[in-house]
Design a binder for these strands. Structure first.
Length: 263
DNA sequence: TGCCAGGCAGACA
DNA sequence: TGTCTGCATGGC
């Protein structure tokens, strides 16, 4: 089926550092694994997208996954005007088409625990090896029973103990239920009880899984941008409830300038 | 070859 | 409460 959206770039989302398992195929299509499904997507024009799925699958899964109900163009325009930064305006223009995905909570948690003090190509590689072991993204008990030694063979490094502890927590608790209905600040605080989840990783989980757009993950790139272009602090309070979206544009823009955007 | 990476936990003052 | 340090490992 086809959809039309003037703020959708599969290529940019793929490169944006929020999802690590998308694959670009030789025929130009994107293989998108999520929620136990695999979607094939073709970007035919800058606004026309072909999704190889039924309308029911689209409305049940992918519409929400791609956050298609939110008007990104309007938000970029309004927030950009409110903040009045040339750098941000340029970032919005450059990152036009980047959307914030609503990804699976467990997968997002594991992915961003692995992301700590790591680089994107290696995060992809490690998650790839982990999935190769099971033929799909492993569930909590599979990660837990895989054990520290085998996790290290996948390249998780010193984060093995964090993964084991967090996997056990997911086995013993309904984390979805615990986070349901929580505000951004409540959810962030709650997530930080997990091993390997601190201020930055919890923000990533809030933003890239829970759809909490107030979350503003500060990694080394964003801190550098804040220091060089925003007097040391980005004005989240002027972001009209979508600081996290702007954060992602800034991250994408700065990385594109430094030519760090690769898969 | 050394620096760096979508940071965190634990020790210590 | 704030600051400092060690951490696995491969990309660049």
């Amino acid at each position: 089926m086809y959809i039309e959206n003037d703020w959708f770039s599969a290529e940019k989302i793929h490169l944006s550092g929020q999802c690590f398992r998308w694959k670009k195929r030789e025929d130009g299509g994107f293989l998108i694994p999520a929620f136990g499904k695999e979607l094939v997507l073709f970007q035919e024009t800058d606004k026309k997208i072909y999704l190889d799925c039924t309308e029911k699958e689209f409305s049940d899964i992918w519409k929400d996954y791609f956050d298609l109900s939110f008007d990104y163009a309007k938000h970029a325009e309004r927030a950009s005007a409110e903040i009045g930064s040339d750098y941000l305006t340029a970032a919005c223009e450059c990152a036009k088409g980047v959307r914030i995905l609503k990804q699976d909570l467990w997968e997002t948690t594991i992915s961003f625990i692995i992301s700590a003090n790591n680089n994107i190509p290696r995060i992809r590689k490690t998650l790839g090896l982990l999935c190769e072991t099971f033929g799909r993204f492993p569930n909590p008990d599979e990660v837990y029973y895989l054990g520290a030694e085998n996790l290290r063979k996948c390249g998780v490094g010193y984060r093995d103990k964090y993964l084991l502890s967090t996997a056990k927590y997911f086995m013993d608790h309904n984390v979805h239920e615990q986070l349901k209905g929580k505000s951004y600040k409540e959810a962030k605080l709650s997530l930080q009880k997990l091993s390997g989840v601190g201020p930055k990783v919890s923000d990533c989980i809030c933003l890239f899984s829970l759809g909490l757009r107030d979350a503003f993950p500060r990694d080394v790139w964003i801190k550098r941008i804040e220091s060089e272009h925003f007097g040391g602090h980005f004005p989240e309070e002027k972001s009209l409830g979508g600081a996290g979206i702007l954060q992602q544009y800034l991250f994408y823009y700065e990385r594109s300038l430094s030519k760090a955007l690769e898969v």
